[in-house]
């Protein structure tokens, strides 16, 4: 008779515990339902060689990632969250960090207008018309930002638009740590 009372209560409490822990982790930002862990962390950046978005530009290839810590941002002019994070990319560029862009399935004309109107934070931009390079990077949401160290290894991945808190809490500390 006593078991009939204790067992359901214990089951309920342990379930509350498990779900509570999960909710708490989401609340504190340790775990996100939308952000998948990247399998590319601590692996070399995929090999690619993308054409430029404007005639006479230099395009963007894996080789350019060697030698200094850089950010790789996957963006498109049609992507609204990309506009949201754009000022923060501009700020990072002004602070002297090197940012490269992969322009995902975009009309080069629109991409150029975007950069002309809002400013160009990128050292170089490569056009990914087929979307295959983005798949190589494991991209599934736009925008996405990767931090690549001076040896060409991916060290961090951010899915979705960057915010001011992302910049001060994660991006800038990681960049500074890698540069030292």
């Amino acid at each position: 008779m006593r078991n009939a009372v204790i067992i359901p209560i214990c089951t309920l409490l342990s379930l509350v515990g498990i779900f509570g822990l999960y909710l708490w982790q989401i609340g504190t930002g340790q775990k996100s339902l939308n952000h998948l862990p990247s399998t590319l962390i601590n692996k070399p950046a995929p090999r690619f060689n993308l054409p430029p978005i404007n005639r006479g530009g230099k395009g963007f290839s894996t080789k350019m990632l060697r030698g200094n810590v850089s950010l790789v941002n996957i963006w498109a002019s049609w992507c609204i969250p990309c506009r949201v994070e754009h000022p923060y990319l501009m700020k990072l560029a002004q602070d002297g960090f090197s940012i490269y862009g992969i322009n995902y399935k975009d009309d080069p004309k629109n991409a150029n207008t975007f950069l002309k109107v809002l400013g160009n934070p990128y050292r170089a931009v490569g056009a990914d018309h087929s979307g295959l390079t983005s798949i190589d990077w494991g991209v599934y949401g736009y925008p996405e930002t990767f931090i690549v160290d001076s040896n060409g290894y991916i060290r961090y991945r951010h899915v979705g638009p960057l915010s001011e808190t992302d910049l001060s809490n994660t991006i800038q500390p990681i960049l500074k740590r890698l540069e030292n």
């Binding site: 998948l36 862990p37 990247s38 399998t39 590319l40 798949i135 190589d136 990077w137 494991g138 599934y140």
Partner: peptide, 8 residues
């Protein structure tokens, strides 16, 4: 595909 996107 798994090497790009993980077991998920």
């Amino acid at each position: 595909v798994v090497s790009r996107y993980g077991d998920f």
